[in-house]
């Protein structure tokens, strides 16, 4: 999904009334079956990632131990047995050449892949909020400067900059942290644009004017009046950014600048597996399948969150066109 599209969709939500309570949100989210299933899958994956050492111990394996006896050395190191050596001991089979347990590597890999994506998303939201709010609330000069910086940020080619940055930073710096910083630091412009647009619209509403007339400071207004109303579009946008961040980490590791061995990540596993697609297909299919399921679930969940937060916008996007609604409004005003 292109970034421009994300901005457009999330930003298309009209200035909503302050969120009508967490309970209502949950009810609306649960009502959508696809989103509920997606949420369950995401929750399961997050739990698996958190409990990686526990799960690996349960399987009696760890991600780094070599098992030379489980691969056919004379045949290039292909796993012995069908389906990549899947057995009672090795639930997902073993890695070609090394014989390392794939189940353990996949759950440990989930930690890196999901962890990096969570951290990067948090960073994108935090930077976006600060920059967007400052632009909306500051004077014209500050707004001009920050908006131009945001435009430049939009224009930066994420992959190219990330490749360059990751190549020059010394290898002693922890890679997962670095990748989260790079993705978060380069790709925050979308959040910032949404926040600025929403905050500018909210600024002119009565409750904000009232607060201003009461003599409250700018940051107090931002915190107490604007932030709660910004929650819906920002959470929606974040939910859509998250799967994008997972794929960016996978792509960087696939290109060889991401996570360094022996730390497993799904993207890094895909890199190692790409030559094996014919002789040991399960090696490629397992991380690829997990990546697919994760990104799909998160995207469905993101859509669900948006619908739950703003059912009016969602139903308009799904069924009708803007013209119909505007027509209705005109009718209302006329009557």
């Amino acid at each position: 999904m292109s970034e421009a599209l994300l901005v457009q969709e999330a930003g298309a939500a009209p200035v909503a009334a302050p969120a009508s309570g967490a309970r209502q949100f949950w009810l609306r989210l649960r009502a959508q079956r696809a989103a509920a299933v997606a949420a369950a899958v995401v929750l399961l994956l997050l739990l698996a990632a958190l409990a990686a050492p526990l799960l690996a111990a349960l399987a009696g394996q760890d991600p780094d131990t070599y098992h030379p006896d489980l691969v056919d050395s004379a045949a290039g190191g292909v796993p012995i047995g069908s389906f990549g050596g899947i057995s009672a001991d090795h639930w997902f089979g073993v890695e070609p050449q090394t014989g390392r347990d794939l189940f353990a590597r996949v759950v440990y890999g989930a930690r890196v892949s999901l962890g990096v994506a969570v951290a990067a998303t948090v960073l994108q939201v935090a930077i976006g909020l600060v920059v967007g709010l400052a632009a909306a609330l500051g004077n014209r000069w500050i707004d001009q400067v920050l908006s131009r910086i945001t435009d430049i940020n939009v224009a930066l080619p994420l992959m190219v900059i990330a490749l360059a940055l990751l190549a020059i930073v010394p290898p002693s710096f922890p890679r997962p942290v670095l990748i989260a910083l790079v993705i978060g630091g380069i790709n925050w412009a979308g959040t910032s644009k949404i926040v600025r647009a929403q905050a500018l619209a909210l600024k002119s509403l009565d409750f904000v004017s009232a607060a201003r007339l009461a003599g409250r400071g700018r940051w107090s207004i931002a915190r107490r009046e604007l932030l709660p109303s910004l929650a819906a579009p920002v959470i929606t946008y974040a939910a859509l950014l998250f799967p994008v961040n997972i794929t960016v980490e996978a792509a960087l590791s696939f290109l060889g600048v991401g996570i360094k061995p022996p730390t497993p990540s799904w993207g890094q596993m895909l890199t190692e597996a790409d030559t094996w697609y014919q002789s040991a297909p399960t090696y490629l299919l397992i991380p690829a399948g997990l990546l697919f399921v994760t990104v799909l679930s998160l995207t469905v969940l993101g859509e669900g969150v948006r619908t739950a937060l703003d059912p009016r916008a969602a139903s308009r996007l799904r069924i009708g066109t803007g013209r119909e609604e505007r027509g209705e409004r005109t009718k209302e005003r006329a009557s």
Partner: peptide
């Protein structure tokens, strides 16, 4: 040269 994965395919 044949790589490890290619060798695995050829040996079969």
């Amino acid at each position: 040269n044949l790589g490890p994965a290619e060798l695995a395919k050829v040996s079969g």
